[in-house]
């Protein structure tokens, strides 16, 4: 089947411009709220351990996705805000495709004493160095400036 008439006049309008405007307020959730509230007052992270399979969730979760059990209060514990780089990339453009003034190193950091990881900016003097497995620590905002979001972690740096 083909349309019996085609649009061949290049001066006739063919597109309509618009957006899908809506703003969002994402609550951190029950586990997330506890994690961020702890981070607002401390320089350490929180994690949770599954009572059945002993997997350590970071960021902490309310439940184990494998055993599908709830993680009780006593299985929450503090871990240092440190870890080792599992994956990394050197970004030269931002999320809109614009060139960055300086390359930015983004890494996935395995948090110590947990089975989880966190995405973060890695500050380094030599962006071209091998970063795989390198141990880093989080640099946090001053306590009075923290707001309870991921932005409270400024970046990670080599120890």
């Amino acid at each position: 089947m083909t349309f019996l008439e085609k649009q061949t006049d290049p001066t006739s309008p063919m597109h309509w411009r618009g957006n899908m405007q809506a703003d969002y307020l994402y609550l951190s959730g029950v586990a997330g709220d506890k994690f961020f509230k702890h981070l607002m007052k401390n320089d350490t992270f929180l994690a949770t351990k599954c009572p059945e399979c002993n997997k350590v969730f970071f960021p902490p979760r309310l439940y184990c996705e494998d055993c599908f059990c709830e993680i009780p209060e006593e299985k929450w514990f503090e871990v240092p805000s440190k870890g080792s780089i599992k994956l990394f990339t050197i970004a030269t453009i931002d999320s809109y495709g614009k060139k960055l003034k300086e390359p930015k190193v983004i890494g996935l950091i395995n948090i110590d004493q947990t089975d989880g990881s966190l995405l973060g900016v890695i500050k380094t003097d030599k962006p071209d160095e091998e970063l795989q497995g390198v141990h880093v620590e989080a640099v946090l905002k001053p306590k009075d400036k923290r707001e309870g979001t991921l932005k409270d972690i400024l970046y990670f740096k080599k120890k």
Binding site: H15, G18, M20, Y26, L27, S28, G32, E147, G148
Partner: peptide
């Protein structure tokens, strides 16, 4: 602010193809 949250304002622009029928209709 009794509960922590993250605020987000997505910025996405679209250019929807109108197709020949609606293009002519609006013209």
């Amino acid at each position: 602010k009794n509960k922590t949250y993250t605020w987000w304002e997505p910025e996405v622009q679209y250019s929807w193809a109108m197709g020949p029928a609606i293009s002519r209709f609006l013209q």
